[in-house]
Amino acid sequence: MEVISTENLTAEFVLLGFYDFPELHFLFFIVFTVVYASIVIGNMLIIVAVVSSQRLHTPMYFFLANLSFLEILYTSTVVPKMLEGFLKEATISVTGCLLQFFIFGSLATTECFLLAVMAYDRYLAICHPLRYPLLMGPTWCLGLVVISWMSGFMVDGLVVILMSQLRFCGPNLIDHFYCDFMPLVELACSDPRVAQMTTFILSVVCLTLPFGLILTSYVRILVAVLRVPAGASRRKAFSTCSSHLAVVSTFYGTLMVLYIAPSAVHSQLLSKVFALLYTVVTPIFNPVIYTLRNKEVHQALWKILYIKKMETLN
């Protein structure tokens, strides 16, 4: 067995990011700074609207506020380091890299479960409206959210424990804009097969089980809605679900391609583009779709603005 000297171990990594397009780095910095600010502000507005409006103290908006909070943390784990890479060489310690991967991966896994919970909530609201207040009571809502958050951090905690056993002693260039699993494992000097197999199995479980619940919920919703005569009730049901479906499609679609069928992505550049979809595009979908298409959130935000305006005038 080869013995690796501690003197040769890698101390820090360099995140190459989008090094292929150095002439566009300043433009990328401006664009993604605006997008990042929009994600934070938009999701914060949703949280403020839900917390401040009594009308929005329902399970659906409770889950939405949790999703918004998650999106802020999610992008804040990755985007600032990506923006740094557009201005100068972005370096990160091995410990910092594993920590970034742990937080980002945990939040991504949590989002999988949280989106499934939101689909289940819509199923109960549409298919069992009379029993809905009992089936989705405050205690059960809180329990589902706690389980979602704990599941994410427990699953990815196991992966990071395995990754922390790896030794990095060769090249320290990560061909990505954040510490993702595959680019990081490729730099390991020790055998990564246990970590790779464990991550693959957990990825399949944590993607397919929540996705299966989402699919089952929406099949049942579709069957129930199609039994209702065409009209306002059917349109309202579809409108309620369409926002959630748009977020689910983008998020799950890209994650499944990258983590369950990575051979479908034939270049590292394409992998980065797919990664941008679930690190930047999906988080901005949340405030845009839910805010622009939701009258109750609109009214709550306008009410907050009106109260602030009156307080300023007085």
Rank of each mutant, 00 (worst) to 15 (best):
V288S: 13
V185Q: 01
F63V: 09
M150C: 13
T75W: 04
V35S: 05
Y278N: 05
I103D: 03
H266Y: 10
Y290H: 14
S190M: 10
F62E: 01
S52L: 02
G231D: 07
G157Y: 02
V145N: 04
L207F: 15
K303C: 15
V185M: 04
T282L: 07
F274Y: 11
R131C: 01
M163Q: 07
T279E: 09
V159A: 11
P229S: 08
V117A: 14
Q299T: 14
R122L: 08
I214E: 04
P129W: 03
L99T: 11
S233C: 00
S76D: 08
F238T: 03
A300K: 13
S38D: 02
L313F: 08
C241H: 04
G231L: 09
T312S: 15
R167C: 00
V257H: 00
N314R: 08
K81G: 00
M163P: 07
R227V: 08
L70Q: 02
F104K: 05
L207Y: 13
Y74D: 05
S190D: 10
F13P: 04
V273A: 06
L16S: 15
F200N: 02
I214T: 01
S271I: 01
E186H: 02
P229E: 07
L70V: 04
H298R: 12
V146C: 06
M197W: 11
L67W: 02
Q54P: 03
E23A: 15
Q268D: 14
S233F: 00
F274L: 08
V14Y: 06
S38N: 05
R220Q: 15
R234Q: 15
L27T: 15
W149K: 06
E2L: 13
F101R: 01
R235G: 05
R234T: 12
F113V: 10
V160Y: 04
W140G: 00
F104P: 00
F285A: 08
V31M: 06
S243T: 12
L107D: 01
G170L: 00
I147Y: 12
L16H: 11
A261N: 11
G85H: 03
G143S: 13
I46G: 01
K236Q: 08
M60G: 04
E23H: 14
